[in-house]
Design a protein around this nucleic acid. Structure first.
Lengths: 246, 246
DNA sequence: GCGTGACATTGATACGGATCAAATGGTCTA
DNA sequence: TAGACCATTTGATCCGTATCAATGTCACGC
């Protein structure tokens, strides 16, 4: 299971760049792809895959948000990744899912049958190279997140998460994060707590604390305003440039 | 930066399988490799790379143990990976190290100049495919570790670490982990605490607790005996088969 | 033998986050 | 408008781990 970003072109059917599997390859592959790809939809809250499930496809998120998570026997769960549009699900060479995948909002996947996709990978090296790059980026992000889980305080964890969402949101709008920026939290307090290794009560308390300290402002429960970006960054405990963009 | 296992053959110079870069490729590459590879040694405790350092090579660990870690401004550090013989350091397409690499014991690296190695990758697809497989495995391991860091108690963390070391040790001896098995901890209490997101005092206390509960026995500070493997596994909090082999 | 220094253990106490519980607010439906 | 339901906030208390401090153990050199 991987959360990977494939560099795709527009296919006219999907709302995102989605024509060929790899933008560096010639569009000849387009015909092949039309044969092996199809779409699936999931409603908010619906499970997409359980760990151990057989997967006959790999897929790319077209719309919506999904989470990658693990659950212990007694119910403790830890989110291990966030899947956003254009992120990749599944891994070549493995038939079963390693983690649970759950739709947070309504989700559309563009699926590729696994066998033909793997064959395509061997015949077009760029795809494998791109996949390797993306996987290495994911690995770096996962390792960055280990620092957050292992060593940061609740307040620093919340600030780190807010900053990640803020940066992703800015990226989506093709802007730089800036003072006064406004964005929506895509996750419930519970989902945040599962991402951060906290309880939902602690998440709520720390968000309130950051609001009272005027590091952030809230409009409703989900919309966040960051009056001073530097102030938020300094709450994360990171050194100035720390590469925490997941 | 990646911690990757390359499937290598014996070159006669290294104590481990190390002849061609990829065992699936023809030995023609051997000549090329002899040109671009060289060796480096580091003493126990010595830093190999600091995060941000320029890297002119990628490398494979030949002997010894190294750690991959991150440190915050105020000194809190989190280990994000353990590098054992045949693990891989560096990543194609990136010139700077993403994490600190420190030799725990005396370490010998077999280094490949980065540019020629990257060229070799494009010309021999199997290498890239193997690297992708290994990176995906690393990613799964990193995500498994997130559950440990985010949701497990100190006692469960220690049990998880002991089990990982036990399994690795068994793998190295080409045996299965079994009741009564004996192994040495390669890490100090402090290094363990940095791996587990705990203090060294808590690590010491929990190891003592496991000893008093007769889950483990100790010979000196470092040698561990596991009388009943199932008992140790049940202390990790994992479901029976949980894939925690890092 | 006796220091010396690194690593580890153990004890006392403080504090951060978990837990249990109740109240608030928003949205949807009847 | 009322009622039900869900996410969220807030409060009171408890517990696990951090922190600060002292002691113990082992290897090594003189």
């Amino acid at each position: 299971m991987g959360s990977l970003h494939l560099d795709l072109k527009d296919c006219g059917q999907c709302p995102i760049r989605h024509r060929a599997v790899c933008s560096r390859c010639e569009p000849d592959e387009l015909e092949v792809l039309e044969d092996i790809k199809y779409y699936r939809s999931y409603e908010a809250g619906q499970p997409i895959l359980w760990a151990g499930d057989h997967m006959e496809f790999v897929a790319s998120v077209v719309t919506g948000i999904a989470t990658l998570s693990q659950t212990m026997e007694d119910g403790r769960t830890q989110m291990v990744g966030l899947l956003l549009p254009s992120d990749f699900i599944g891994r070549p060479g493995r038939e079963t899912a390693a983690f649970d995948v759950v739709a947070v909002s309504d989700v559309t996947l563009c699926c590729f049958r696994r066998k033909p996709f793997e064959h395509l990978m061997t015949s077009t090296p760029h795809i494998g190279q791109r996949l390797l790059e993306m996987t290495l980026d994911e690995l770096d992000s996962a390792r960055d997140w280990m620092l957050v889980l292992g060593r940061k305080t609740a307040r620093e964890k919340i600030a780190s998460l807010l900053l990640i969402v803020a940066r992703r949101d800015a990226l989506l709008r093709k802007q730089l994060p800036s003072d006064g920026m406004i964005f929506d939290l895509p996750l419930t307090r519970e989902a945040m707590s599962n991402y951060l290794g906290l309880t939902l009560e602690t998440v709520s308390r720390q968000i309130s604390a950051l609001r009272k300290a005027e590091i952030i402002q809230l409009e409703g429960k989900r919309r966040v305003i960051v009056p001073d970006l530097e102030a938020l960054i300094s709450e994360t405990g990171d050194d100035v440039d720390g590469g925490l963009i997941v």
